[in-house]
Simulated assay, not measured.
Amino acid sequence: MENDAFRISVIALCDAIQRPVPASPRTRETVPPGYGRREQCRPFVAAAGAGLAIPSPFEWGYCLQDQVPQGTRSFRSPIPGGCARRVFYVRDEPGRHFRKNQFDIPESVARHAGSLVIPGLSFFEGPDQQHMVKLHLPYILRTQSGAGLLFLPPINRARTDGLMLLSGLVETGWYAGAVNLVFELPQIDSPVHVGAGETIAQVLPLPMKAAKADAIFPERHRREVRNALEEHAEWHAIHGEDRSAYKRLARKHIAE
């Protein structure tokens, strides 16, 4: 139910941002007919629809110069030795206050937050990090105290161009900065083109206490082990009678 949703505050640092939205369980437009499709697997669908989808705040890419779309601004990494063959590009979006690879900060924000400079793309200085680029989000994400946000590539939506988001866990219960996403650039020559509003990350809330876990291995004679094995046998019997048993049982537990 909506009232059970974990609340994440999105504090915009500029006007008309591409807003994060609840992630969709749908991962492809056309689903082939028949049984056994991934869309019928509840764990797959539940993972794809978990948390928020983070859209790209602007159009950008990484490619050879002759592959740069018309009307965009192309540039190279300012770090010596970075990106020798390919260039980056961004597209100005005046309606979203994004120009020349930088967001315009309204006076109403600057009055409280001070002088801010938020680039679109920026780069690492270390020579061992020239295969990565940072994409800055023009908003702050905050959660309740003791909670954090796990930033992941879009779940069950693999890219085919080799661009890879590096995962990060941010302690948004107290961290007051805007997050920047770190992408590892493809080492293959396929071009990268990312549209404004395209989902580029998925963010999951979790208690920071859950970030650390221990695995325990109870002895086989323990009651919890015997219970788990008996429940395992019962599950297989139920599933043998109804291939959709997991969905039915999940709906029952949600209702409870």
Score class of each variant (00 low, 15 high):
Gly114Thr: 00
Ser115Leu: 02
Ser115Phe: 03
Leu116Ile: 02
Ile118Val: 13
Ile118Gln: 05
Gly120Glu: 13
Gly120Tyr: 00
Glu125Tyr: 07
Glu125Asp: 08
Pro127Ala: 12
Gln130His: 14
Gln130Tyr: 06
His131Ala: 13
Val133Ala: 04
Lys134Tyr: 11
Leu135His: 02
Leu135Thr: 10
His136Tyr: 12
His136Lys: 08
Pro138Asp: 15
Pro138Cys: 15
Pro138Glu: 15
Tyr139Gln: 13
Ile140Phe: 13
Ile140Asp: 15
Leu141Glu: 03
Gln144His: 06
Gly148Pro: 07
Gly148Trp: 05
Leu149Asn: 04
Leu150Asp: 12
Phe151Cys: 06
Phe151Val: 01
Leu152Ala: 07
Pro153Phe: 08
Pro153Asp: 07
Asn156Pro: 03
Arg157Ser: 06
Arg159Gln: 14
Thr160Arg: 08
Asp161Phe: 10
Gly162Leu: 07
Gly162Arg: 02
Met164Tyr: 09
Leu165Ser: 07
Ser167Arg: 11
Ser167Glu: 15
Gly168Lys: 04
Leu169Cys: 12
Leu169Phe: 14
Leu169Asp: 11
Leu169Glu: 14
Gly173Asp: 03
Gly173Ala: 05
Gly173Glu: 09
Tyr175Thr: 11
Gly177Glu: 15
Val179Leu: 11
Asn180Gln: 11
Leu181Trp: 01
Leu181His: 00
Leu181Asp: 05
Leu181Met: 02
Glu184Arg: 08
Glu184Gln: 12
Pro186Phe: 09
Pro186Lys: 05
Gln187Ala: 13
Gln187Arg: 10
Ser190Asp: 11
Val192Asn: 08
His193Leu: 11
Val194His: 04
Ala196Leu: 06
Gly197Pro: 05
Gly197Trp: 01
Glu198His: 00
Ile200Asn: 00
Ile200Thr: 03
Ile200Phe: 00
Ala201Leu: 04
Ala201Glu: 13
Ala201Gln: 02
Ala201Thr: 02
Val203Asn: 06
Leu204Trp: 08
Leu204Lys: 01
Ala210Glu: 15
Ala213Glu: 09
Ala213Ser: 12
Asp214Glu: 14
Asp214Leu: 10
Asp214Tyr: 00
Pro218Trp: 03
Pro218Ser: 03
Glu219Tyr: 01
Arg222Trp: 07
Arg222Asp: 12
Arg222Pro: 04
Arg223Ile: 08
Glu224Met: 15
